[in-house]
Each structure stands twice: as C-alpha cells, then as structure tokens.
Design a protein around this nucleic acid. Sequence first.
DNA 1: TCGTCCAATATGAACAGTCGTCTTGCTCTT
DNA 2: AAGAGCAAGACGACTGTTCATATTGGACGA
Lengths: 197, 197
Amino acid sequence: MARRSMREEIVNAAVDRFHTHGYNAAGIKDIAEAAGVPKGSVYNHFESKEALALVVLELYGETRRLGELSDRSVEPLVRLRRHFEFLRDEQEQYGFTRGCLLGNFGAEVADHSMALRGKIHEGFDQWSHALAGALRDAVMTGDVDSTVDPDTTAIFLLSSWEGALVAARSSRSAKPFDAFFSSVFDRLLVPGLREPA
Amino acid sequence: MARRSMREEIVNAAVDRFHTHGYNAAGIKDIAEAAGVPKGSVYNHFESKEALALVVLELYGETRRLGELSDRSVEPLVRLRRHFEFLRDEQEQYGFTRGCLLGNFGAEVADHSMALRGKIHEGFDQWSHALAGALRDAVMTGDVDSTVDPDTTAIFLLSSWEGALVAARSSRSAKPFDAFFSSVFDRLLVPGLREPA
DNA sequence: TCGTCCAATATGAACAGTCGTCTTGCTCTT
DNA sequence: AAGAGCAAGACGACTGTTCATATTGGACGA
C-alpha cells in the first residue's frame, strides 16, 4: 500500500482539532475533513474516537521536548527556564489560546474515560519525572538548596504551569506566565539559606 | 409562588451537570431532567445554553468562600491555608473528580465563547484579588517577607491551584495538593531573609 | 515481463440517536 | 375574558459508528 501516511494525516489533523476545539467539540467529521479523507475512513484505522484520542495524546507528549530537561551540558536551572520559555512562546504564538492538550483533556474527559485518564496521567508522569531530574541536578550543584524535594517540586511546577495556561487563556494575557516565572525562578528555586524572622 | 423556584432548580441542576460533565457533554435534556422540568421549559428562563452557563458561573463563584480571605480576625497565612484546605477537602469528597468549574470551562470553552471567557476571567479576577488582599496583609504583618508582590503571587497561587486540580483528577490522588501545600506554605510564603550561598 | 488473483484497505451512504432551539397551543392568574 | 407564563413535541442538523461495496498493491505462476 502506497499511502501509509493516511493514518498519519488523520492523527495529525486530530491533534490539531482536539487541541483547538477539545474532545467533545471536535467531531470525527471535522477531523476527517481536515485530514482530507472521508469520514468513514477514520474507522479503518481507529476503533473509536477514544482510541484515536489515545494515539493523539501519545504523539502530543512526544512534542513536549522533555529531552532538553536532562541535557547535562546545560545548567539545570537554565534547562528548566528554557523549557518553560519554549512552552510560553508556543502559547504566545497562538494568542494565548489552545493551552496544553494534556491539561485540556485532563479537565474535560479525565473523569469519564478511564483509558484517556490513564494516558493523561502517563503524560504528566513522564513530564514530572523529567522535571524532577533537572531539579535533582540543581540540588546537587547547589543551585537550589537541599531542602527542595525534587519529586514534590516537580509536581508543583507541572501543576503551576498547567494552571497558568488556563489563566492565560481566560485573560488572553501573559500575566499568569510572568507570575509563574517570577514566583518560580526568583523565589521558589533559589540558592541560599533561609533564616527565621 | 412555587413557580419562582423553577428557575433556581434549573440553575442548580445546571451547576451540577456542567461541573461533572463539562459544557459540551452536559445536554439541555440532562439538565432539564435533573431539575425535574421538561426540556422546553429551560428556554422559558434562558435564552440559550450559553446564557444559562453564564448564570451558572456567577452562582458558582459565590460558593468559593472568598469572604474568608479578608477576615482580619484570622492571621493572613492561616486564612490562605484554610481557604485552600477547604477547596482541597471539597475535591477529596468527590474522589478527586470534578475540579473547579471555572478552570474546567477555562480549558474547554474559553477560546470559543467570548461571553463565557469574560465570566471566567471575572471569576478568576475576583478570586485573585481576594488572595492578593490576604497576601498584602501577610506582608504587612511580616508573615512573609516584603519582596513578595501580592498581586503577582496571587495570580501564581490561583494558577498553581487550578493546575493542581487537573493533576489530581488525572492521577486520582491528593499528591498534587500535597505538593501545592508544601511548596507554597513551606517555601514560597515564609518569613525571613534569604542569603546568597 | 506479463496477467491473474487475493487480501487488505478505502469509501460514502445510512444508522439510530442526540443536540440546541423554536413554535404552538394550553393552563393558569387576574 | 384577557393576558402571561409554561409545557410538549417537533425541527433540522449533527453525532459517533457501521457495513456492504469498490478499489487497490503486491504475490505468484507462467
């Protein structure tokens, strides 16, 4: 078969539609049309809309540049900052719309599809592990003090970012991102000791 | 007049359905049935599904206990902690499902309905102002040091909480909440000076 | 090199059901 | 009797899904 790419066309179109319209508002018909294939064809490649969404989430996760978080040739805090700067710039490009597909699905369908919730959780888990890795490096180099627990803080960073995405969309502004960067990098993740008042 | 309560019945049912199923997945028929009124009656009271959702958001905002954040008889940091503990307990009750209606709508429909986005933004704005008030008090009493900008930090707290809700739903666990509390109250909001390493 | 055939894939019409919305006529209150 | 408020069902458009048919690429025999 020559057109191995048709499945890919569908998945790519689905990433876009799910991302911009959400799970329920994105129709199979929309996705098929965006992919340039007839509606019925989608079901040759995917058992259901849910099954398609699972593949979409997998693919989306691979575009999150988690690799750069473990690049030891860059200082840990710089890695972290650049990572979130990349994500912020992506949002700014779209005029503070769309947000993160994992987060969107987490809010919309996590309660109603066990399969999708599993994939969302998996995506978040990989992400927080990558963040924790960079944080661990930062603790080791002394860039942040040793009272910071990498795993806990990774989950917090991930949460904070996901929330900032929602806030940024609601206000159509970069303010929540600015708040994220200053709170995280100027206060939360700093070297030095703390003394009681 | 018992009639007067029918509109309220519809709104209350709508809050529940929108909260548990999301905007698109919650149907007018579901809402009407949950309210115990025929489907057609909904349109006697509301111009459209969107108009109903606007009223729902308004009502939901009033249940967020923003008042307690400005209760000066309680220490500012205690106020903040209790506020988020209340929200956390609410989530725990529902087995880490549902999340926050404002955040859910922010992720699902903020990009596609200007009216709803406005209301969501309004809700977040009121909330962050209430948080900022408590933070301002905390700075004044010296419970957090004066380098903390109340407005910026309020937005960050709000974002972090909303993200924690999504993460908690995806993992069906309290871990993101724990991460929130320890990162915020043990690291971000602490009194005392910071010294370079 | 060609012709034949098969299994895999592609298709689009049709399915039963649901969506948000609107119209029509009825039931009450005054 | 006049009026407003309400309910019931119908509206067309759309949903995710199915299926019988059409089309196809490559394998194989000659």
